[in-house]
Amino acid sequence: MDSTPAPGENIAVLRKARGLGQAKLARLAGISVSLLSKIEVGLRPATPPVVAALSKAMKVPTQRIYGQPFLGPSEQSDLLNDLRGAVRRHTLPKEDVPRPSQLAADVDKAMRLRSEARYLELLEMLPRLLDQATATALSAPGETGAWSQVADVYGCAYAAAHRLAQPDLADMIVARQSWAAHQTWNPEAEVATAWNLAGTYQSAGQYDDGLAIVDQAIVKYERMSESVTMATALSLGSLHLRGVVLASRHKDKSATADHLKMAKRYAEQIPTDVLWHNLTFGAENTALYELAAHVELGKPTQAAEMGDPLMQSPPTTLAPSRLGRMYIDIARAKLDVKDHTGAEEALTRAFKVSPQMAELHPMSREVIRVLFVLHQRARPVLLAMAKRTGLAV
């Protein structure tokens, strides 16, 4: 495998191509020269807010900085092109209507693969499944359940496109998901769509616009809800969790606290964490968002302290995709408090529970990059992780 340029390396290349010195770029991005210098050489991770600030300063998409980290580009490119074709011809499905029981089973399988972060297997089945689900819905206009299935499959497609660093495809998928959700009155499908739409702004580093999407969706759903039901708690709670991420990356402590408070309130209505319309919500997942918010708001010590008991007794109700993300956030917190052994242990667990997420996630790769630069080949496990993410050969 060829080594893949890391964000810090990409930042240096883009900066030089634009004739910018470190001092000028740091000033434009609102960060210190010391931080920028350390990011470029791999001594500090390029965090999402910093990437957002640098991309704005250099007038490039955030994806130009993150690059294309996934493995097997030839195979994955073919799979992504198949998915892109299915999304493009959304009203012209090439598949026949399958048996309802088979379609339901396949949709459930796709959502399971998504929750388990098994993106390659998911990609392989998505084009055909999208065509089949759409053909079924078009043959039964006005059928809420059929269109809900289409929206759910698009939700799975969004997860794959997002994680495989395809922002333009992710944007197109969200537009199609919105189309499917609006074919009938389906407020829960609209919530899932809004959650993904806000995610596209999050990926682009446009946190304030993402927060506006979340706030609009919350207001709209609250107007339609006469009482707090399980569906209400799941929908509004999930939207508030998205708000926690966006607000914390936007460094808005007040908005972060408000969204977290509401998420915890709705989590009290859920006996145990639930995966529903590709959204996970409950008390355990809310705690993971709180941990991540501490990191984003510059409180790594609190995040690391939250992470210690989670490392000892991991949540039992959460899917591998959520556990993998938890370990990545703990690793980042441990790195920030200079607990390099703890960071490596958290990353090792991320690779064990959710290998594809650990290989692809930008923060996983950034923490590995910094640890690798600091320790080079002194730690065999770290070297193995660096090779799996394309950061070493």
Rank of each mutant, 00 (worst) to 15 (best):
D2P: 12
G19A: 04
G19S: 03
G19W: 10
G19M: 07
L20T: 08
G21L: 03
R27T: 10
G30Q: 11
I31A: 12
V33W: 02
S34A: 15
K38L: 13
P48I: 02
P48C: 11
V51P: 00
M58C: 07
K59Y: 04
Q63E: 10
P69E: 00
L71C: 01
D78H: 13
R88P: 00
P98M: 07
S101M: 09
L126K: 07
L126P: 00
P127A: 12
A133N: 11
S139Y: 01
G142M: 08
A146M: 00
S148A: 14
G155S: 13
C156Q: 02
A159D: 01
R163M: 12
R163W: 03
A165N: 15
A165K: 10
P187W: 10
A192R: 10
W195T: 00
G199Q: 01
T200W: 06
A204I: 02
Y207I: 00
A217R: 05
Y221R: 14
T229C: 13
L234V: 08
L246A: 08
A247E: 04
A247G: 04
H250N: 12
S254K: 13
A255N: 01
D258G: 06
K261G: 15
P271R: 03
P271K: 05
T272M: 08
D273I: 03
F281S: 08
N285Y: 06
A292P: 01
A293G: 02
H294D: 13
H294Y: 15
K299D: 13
T301L: 14
A303M: 06
L310R: 12
A319S: 14
Y327C: 07
I328S: 05
D339K: 10
T341F: 07
E345Q: 11
K352M: 09
M363I: 09
V367T: 14
V370T: 10
F372R: 15
L383D: 11
L391W: 04
